[in-house]
C-alpha cells in the first residue's frame, strides 16, 4: 500500500527556487526559459529550502521542485565502500546535483537528504578547477553518483561539459551511471574511450514496483544499443538486485533478454550486486514507510544492511551462472561484502 499515489500532482519543477547571486547567470536564464510557467522564488541560500525541517520526502516525491544554487565547497568526494572504483589509482565522485528526478524505493538519497527536491549547482567549472590538480594520475570520476545526471541532461548539459573536459585530460576516466534513455544528449559528442556509460537494468516487474518514473527496460535497452552503435564504452549493472519470490525467473530472464539484443562482446563489464545500504540510511527509509524494500529482515554487519549471507550468495551465484553463459569471468564484476 502506498501512502500516496505515485502520480505527479503538479507538473515537474512547478517551482524554481533560485539563489539571488545567480539570478543573472546565463545557465539560470536558460533554465528559467525552459520552465517559463514555473513560479520563481528568490532565495539567499539553497539550504534555506533544501534543509528545512518538517519536509516530507514522500509527499515531495510527487511534486519535485528545482533549486538553483552555486556550490561553495568541495565538488569532489572520495569513492565509498559501497561502490566499485575499478582499480583506478584515484576514485572520486562529483556532486554537482543533489537529488534525483527518478524515485526508486531503494534509493539511499531518501536517507541522505531531508528533501526530495533537486539542487542543481550551476558552477560546474569550479568542479573542474578542483579536479585539475589530481589529473597527473590515473583518476576515475563518477559524475552521476548521488543522482542521475543524464536524466536531466536536457536541462543541465552537465554531462556534455564533463565529456568536453574529459577529452582534454588523458588520465581522466569518467563513469556516467544512469537509468535514463536519453541517448540524444550524446549523439553530437565524439565518444571517448576513457568514458564508460553504465546502465542500471532491472526486470520490468521490478521497475514497475520499485523504480518509479524511470524509463522502461525496453527503453533503457534501446538506449544501450544506440550508445554501443555510436561507439561508446558501455557497462551494464544489475545492481541492486531486489530479492523477490520470483527472483529465479525475473533476473535470469533479464540476462537472457539483454543478451538476446546486445552482443556480449560489445559491453565492457556486467556488474552484479544485491541490495545493500548503510544502517542509518535504512532507518531513514523505514521512517518514510513507502516500500517493502525498507522492511526486509536484512543482516546488519559493520553498519551495513545486506540480505542474509545465504540469500546474498544465492543471488550472486545464480546470476553469476547465468552471466557465465554470455561473458567470460573477468568481465563479470560482483559486489560482495568484505
Amino acid at each position: 500500500m502506498k501512502p500516496s499515489s505515485k502520480h505527479l500532482l503538479t507538473r515537474l519543477f512547478s517551482h524554481l527556487y533560485i539563489e539571488r547571486s545567480i539570478l543573472d547567470h546565463p545557465k539560470t536564464h536558460k533554465i528559467r526559459a525552459k520552465f517559463s510557467e514555473s513560479q520563481v522564488i528568490v532565495i539567499d541560500h539553497y539550504k534555506e529550502v533544501f534543509n528545512r525541517s518538517s519536509q516530507s520526502f514522500a509527499a515531495q516525491s510527487n511534486s519535485k521542485k528545482l533549486i538553483l544554487a552555486r556550490k561553495e565547497g568541495k565538488f569532489l568526494h572520495e569513492g565509498s565502500q559501497y561502490s566499485d572504483g575499478f582499480e583506478h589509482e584515484q576514485f572520486f565522485y562529483a556532486s554537482s546535483v543533489m537529488g534525483c528526478l527518478y524515485d526508486c524505493d531503494y534509493c539511499y538519497l531518501q536517507g541522505l537528504y531531508p528533501s526530495a527536491n533537486t539542487v542543481l549547482f550551476i558552477n560546474l567549472e569550479d568542479a573542474f578547477e578542483q579536479l585539475r590538480p589530481y589529473l597527473g594520475k590515473d583518476t576515475l570520476v563518477a559524475t552521476s553518483y548521488d543522482t542521475d545526471t543524464l536524466a536531466i541532461e536536457s536541462l543541465t548539459h552537465q554531462t556534455r561539459e564533463w565529456l568536453e573536459f574529459a577529452a582534454e585530460y588523458e588520465q581522466l576516466h569518467l563513469e556516467i551511471r544512469t537509468k535514463s534513455a536519453n541517448i540524444n544528449a550524446l549523439k553530437s559528442i565524439t565518444p571517448n574511450s576513457r568514458v564508460t556509460l553504465a546502465w542500471t537494468l532491472s526486470p520490468q516487474e521490478i521497475i514497475d514496483r520499485y523504480e518509479h518514473t524511470t524509463p522502461s527496460l525496453e527503453k533503457r535497452l534501446n538506449a544501450v544499443i544506440e550508445a554501443i552503435a555510436l561507439g561508446w564504452k558501455v557497462r551494464l549493472c544489475i545492481d541492486p538486485v531486489i530479492y523477490t519470490e520470483n527472483f529465479d525467473i525475473l533476473y535470469p530472464t533479464l540476462i537472457d533478454r539483454i543478451f538476446s539484443l546486445i552482443d556480449p562482446k560489445a559491453i565492457e563489464h556486467l556488474t552484479l550486486g544485491s541490495f545493500r545500504m548503510s544502517q542509518n540510511h535504512l532507518r531513514a527509509l523505514k521512517k518514510l514507510r513507502r516500500s517493502d524494500v525498507a522492511f526486509y529482515p536484512y543482516a546488519v554487519s559493520h553498519d551495513m544492511a545486506t540480505y542474509p549471507e545465504s540469500i546474498e550468495t544465492y543471488i550472486l551465484e545464480q546470476l553469476g551462472i547465468k552471466a557465465d553463459e554470455y561473458l567470460p569471468q573477468e568481465r563479470i564484476r560482483t559486489w560482495q561484502r568484505q
Partner: peptide
C-alpha cells in the same frame, strides 16, 4: 528569516 510552505498541489 524566511519560511517556505510546500505547495505540492495544482
Amino acid at each position: 528569516r524566511r519560511y517556505y510552505p510546500d505547495i505540492l498541489y495544482p
